[in-house]
Structures are given as C-alpha cells and as structure tokens.
Simulated assay, not measured.
Amino acid sequence: MSEEKAVLEVLAALAEAWNEGDAAAYGRLFTEDADYVTFFGMNMPGRQAIEANHRALFEGPLKGSKIGVGGAGEVKVRFVRPDVAIVVAGGGSSLEGAEFRASTVGYVLVRNGGEWRVASFQNTRVSDPAVAR
C-alpha cells in the first residue's frame, strides 16, 4: 500500500468513527500528545482530552452528526519527510435537519511503528470574509 493511501485511510477512519459516534475509536487515531484545534479556536491537548471531549459531544450537542473529508473540496497530501505528512482537505459536518457546515481542515500525521496517527488537527469553518469582519 502506498503511504498516501495509508494516510487517506486514517482520514476515512476518522470520519467513520465520528459518524458512528465512537469517541474511543476516534481518539485512537491520534498520537498521545496530539493537539486538536476546533473551528472556534479551542485546543484539546492529548489523546485523552480528544476522546473525552468527543464522547461528551457525541452524547450531547453533536449526537447523530455526520462528517465528511474531501467531499467539500480537494484533499492535498504532502510528505515533508517519509514519516510526516501534512494534509489540507475540504470537509464539514451536519446535524440531522441542519444545513451542511463546510470547513477546511489541516492535519499533520506521523508514522510510528508502521502506523499513521494524527499529531495535529485544525478545523476552520468556511465563511464569507465580508461577513466575518
């Protein structure tokens, strides 16, 4: 399997875990010391915080939400070293009955022991710059 395909499989697994509301599976795809920056600027440092916060979200305000990666735009994978990949992708989320919220997401993935994991994640909501002033 190509390294790019392996990286893309991690992104697909993230979406699958989210869409199933499985915080443990979602959290396992991050490194122990990962940083997860939400669209509103909150940082969740570390796998445990990422899992715990997503468990609360999946059981509460984001219960039943769905995400997609790449559906709202191109997925660009760039290897800065053989064991470090930077990914910028279109994505977004939706709640049942609500409008799709498009995002641009950035990931830094690292390969350790043959497995790719997310070391850093940044979600930025797509908005009209004229409105965002």
Rank of each mutant, 00 (worst) to 15 (best):
V77H: 13
A89I: 08
K5T: 08
A6I: 08
S93I: 12
L8K: 03
R101Y: 00
V7G: 00
A6M: 10
V84K: 04
S120K: 07
L11P: 00
G70L: 07
G97V: 13
P61H: 09
A24H: 06
M44S: 04
V126P: 04
A23K: 01
V7W: 00
F40A: 13
F39T: 14
V10P: 06
V126G: 03
R101H: 05
A24P: 03
K76A: 15
N123V: 05
R55G: 05
R117T: 02
A49M: 12
A34N: 08
E59I: 04
K5P: 02
A132K: 11
E4Y: 02
A72L: 04
A52H: 10
N19V: 08
G90C: 11
L62F: 12
L11E: 02
V75T: 15
A89R: 08
A13D: 02
E74V: 08
V37C: 15
G91E: 06
D83Y: 07
F40T: 15
T31A: 12
F39I: 15
G60W: 00
R81K: 12
D35L: 07
T124P: 00
A52T: 13
A6G: 06
A6C: 03
D33G: 12
S93Y: 13
A89W: 06
P45Q: 14
W116P: 02
T124S: 06
T124M: 05
A89P: 10
G46P: 12
A49H: 06
G60D: 00
F30N: 00
S93P: 01
D83L: 04
T31C: 10
K76C: 12
L57H: 06
V88W: 02
R28V: 08
E4A: 05
V77Y: 12
G114Q: 05
F58E: 05
L29P: 00
T31P: 07
T124N: 05
V7M: 00
R111Q: 07
A6K: 12
R117Y: 02
D33M: 10
S103A: 13
F39R: 14
N112P: 01
A49P: 01
R111V: 05
S120I: 11
A72V: 06
S120G: 14
R28P: 00
N53E: 02
G90V: 11
V84A: 03
L57W: 06
V37E: 09
A12K: 13
F79A: 10
E74K: 11
S93N: 12
F39L: 14
E32H: 09
I67Q: 01
Q48M: 11
E16A: 11
E20K: 15
V75R: 04
A13G: 03
G91N: 03
G60L: 01
S103T: 12
V7K: 01
E96N: 11
V10Y: 11
